[in-house]
Write a protein that binds this DNA or RNA. Structure first.
Lengths: 103, 103
DNA sequence: ACTTACGGTAAGTCATGGCTGACGTAGAGC
DNA sequence: GCTCTACGTCAGCCATGACTTACCGTAAGT
C-alpha cells in the first residue's frame, strides 16, 4: 500500500513521467535519457532513484554505464490498487443513484 | 491526457487521497469531512477544489451545505491511461526478454 | 431582522522537493 | 598509469503547494 503511494507520487511529476515513458521504447542509459530532456543529467539520475525506490524501474550495470529498464511491479501495484478503488467507487456511485430514485 | 495528469497529481497528496477515500463511503459535506481529519476546514475545502478540477469529485448544493460525491470520470481516465501504459510496458518488457534469449 | 451554521476566498507562512553546479568514483581505451 | 566518459552524491537555491487565520457571502431558524 505504501508501495502504491510512492508509485503514484513518483508518476505525479511531469519530468519523471516523461523519463518513465521514454523507457517504454526500450532500456536506456542515464546519459541517453538526459540528452533528450531539458534537464541536467544529475536531475535525471535523481528521478531514476525515485522511480527505482517506487518499484517502477530497475537498473543493470553495463560496464561504466548504467542501463535502466521498466519494472512491471510498480505499475502492476498501481493497477491493482486502482482496480479495487474503481469497483468500490462505482458501487458507491450506483448505490447513491438507486437511493435517490427510491424517493 | 492533461486531465489524467491532474488526476494523478491530485491523488498524490496523502490528505487528498484520504478525503477521496472517505467519499467512497458516501457523499459528505465539507464540515463532516473536515471533522474527521487533522486539518482545518479551509484546507479540506481547497483539496476538494483540486479534486473537483481533476474530475474526481462533483458537488451539489444542499441548502447552506455543500455535499461532495465521487465522480467516476476522473478515476476512469486514470484507469484508461494506466491500462494503455500497462500493456505497452509489458510488451516492451517481454520483447526485451526475448531479445536477450536470442544470444 | 438577528443570529448561527456552513463553506468558499485571500493573504501569509513554512516545508517539500526539483534543479543545478561541483565533486568524487569506477570502468574502458590508449 | 593517464585520460576520458559515465554516474551517483552533496550542498545550496528557489519555486510550488499545503496549511492556517481572518474575512465575507449565503442559507436557515427564531
Amino acid at each position: 500500500m505504501a508501495d502504491v503511494e510512492r508509485a503514484i507520487s513518483a508518476l505525479a511529476d511531469p519530468t519523471r513521467r516523461t523519463v518513465f515513458e521514454r523507457l517504454i521504447d526500450g532500456p536506456q542509459s542515464v546519459g541517453a535519457l538526459a540528452r533528450g530532456l531539458p534537464v541536467s543529467r544529475p536531475a535525471v539520475s535523481q528521478h531514476l532513484q525515485v522511480l527505482k525506490s517506487a518499484g517502477l524501474v530497475a537498473d543493470r550495470a553495463e560496464g561504466a554505464r548504467r542501463v535502466y529498464r521498466i519494472d512491471p511491479a510498480g505499475l502492476g501495484a498501481i493497477r491493482a490498487w486502482l482496480d479495487r478503488f474503481w469497483t468500490q467507487a462505482l458501487d458507491a456511485y450506483q448505490a447513491e443513484i438507486d437511493s435517490k430514485e427510491e424517493n
